[in-house]
Design a protein around this nucleic acid. Structure first.
Lengths: 215, 215
DNA sequence: CGGTCAATCTAAACAGTGTTAAGATAGATA
DNA sequence: TATCTATCTTAACACTGTTTAGATTGACCG
């Protein structure tokens, strides 16, 4: 490779060039990521194909390889952004509440809400075989999202860090399992708005059962 | 070939015929299911292909369609058997313990053990998009497995059926989420025997945290 | 200003996939 | 023995992800 170090400024290079120009795309990475996210939103994780992403970005099927290596590379980038969005959602949900238990409940609701509203992206985030599972940035993003749980849990249980680790695993497992089962229609259909709200009510009951006021 | 038939008994109809005969296979359904389970065991859910299953059964790629319609049909049959095996494991685990809490813990361990020891089959069981999700037998098998949890939970909580429903959803979510996260290496590698045992220990802690002696 | 060069993209090909249509074969039945 | 139907094969189709070789382009440097 040996990139020529690319001066940071003072050059006729346009970072936001003509949108639909000829040979060079200019923003192909972003376009491919956006196309992939659109496919995931429309068709779910099983509906993604690299060729379709290239098609939507207006390039040949071989173009993505120059930027992401292969399909796993592109999906890894999508998953990283997914984890960042999830961490944001968890942080935001907790920030809107007072008290550790309320924060934890809010995070649980936010987690499942994220999964149900972006099922394709969510499923892809947890499909290691379709990602570069040992990518450092992916691992870091995943751990960062999990960390949002641990922060609140540590506040809640107070005990030694080992118990906090256990409690965090418990909380993550519960909401993750609930989301996964809901996405596979094990709690009824998620399609209708009524079904969605019923499922979220069930989740509320589950959280109240496992983390009641006295803990 | 044309074996001299060598009938086991005085009747031309053989339900367990020559194992590797000519045009007609004779037990193709079972052979395809067995081949599919072998692929899932060796390669995981992502490694399954219909053509490979046909190859292992010694038939052409089009042969399965006459028995299962398409790949989803074959995988649905595999998933049904998976749910039956899971229900058996849950029932067996509970039967070996005394007391509702001990039974529930044993079921949780059995559930995750099942998932970690047969990851390909387990993942396929919960991959609706690769199955005929509304197949009545599949739905029934799935509900039967979930029912094994509800039996024990009802014994544990005792309260009104609505609370039992909530508690069952909680228990299933927790162990399912734990299994899924473990399979995606979120609790460390499952590869080594040491890693596997460490994860099961973590699960024990989680169960003791969420369902302690006093409940 | 003009030439070089690396980054970027295309075209074409390859091996693989699931599914379908048409035809061959064989087992059971009459 | 002849026929009928379930079963299986062959061949084709439209896809997929990836690789190789070559075309194009914009940026840098004299």
């Amino acid at each position: 490779m040996t990139k020529p170090i690319a001066p940071a400024r003072a050059k006729p290079s346009r970072k936001v060039p003509k949108p639909e120009a000829g040979y060079h795309h200019g923003e192909l990475q972003e376009a491919l990521i956006a196309a992939s996210e659109a496919i995931l939103a429309e068709q779910g994780a099983e509906g993604f194909t690299l060729r379709e992403a290239a098609r939507r970005a207006g390039v040949s099927p071989a173009a993505p390889s120059h930027h992401f290596g292969n399909a796993q590379g592109l999906l890894t980038e999508v998953a990283i952004r997914g984890y960042e969005a999830l961490a944001d959602a968890l942080r935001d949900a907790a920030s809107r509440k007072q008290g550790a238990r309320e924060k934890l409940h809010a995070q649980g609701l936010a987690y499942v809400e994220f999964a149900l509203k972006h099922p394709g992206r969510f499923q892809m985030m947890f499909a290691n075989k379709r990602l570069v599972a040992d990518d450092p940035r992916l691992r870091q993003a995943s751990r960062a999202a999990g960390h949002e749980f641990e922060i609140i849990i540590a506040e809640l249980v107070g005990g030694p860090p080992k118990q906090a680790k256990t409690a965090a695993a418990a909380a993550w497992s519960t909401v993750h399992g609930f989301a996964k089962l809901a996405l596979e229609d094990k709690f009824g259909s998620v399609q209708s708005e009524a079904g969605y709200r019923e499922i979220m009510t069930t989740l509320n009951h589950v959280l109240n059962y496992l983390w009641p006021a006295s803990r």
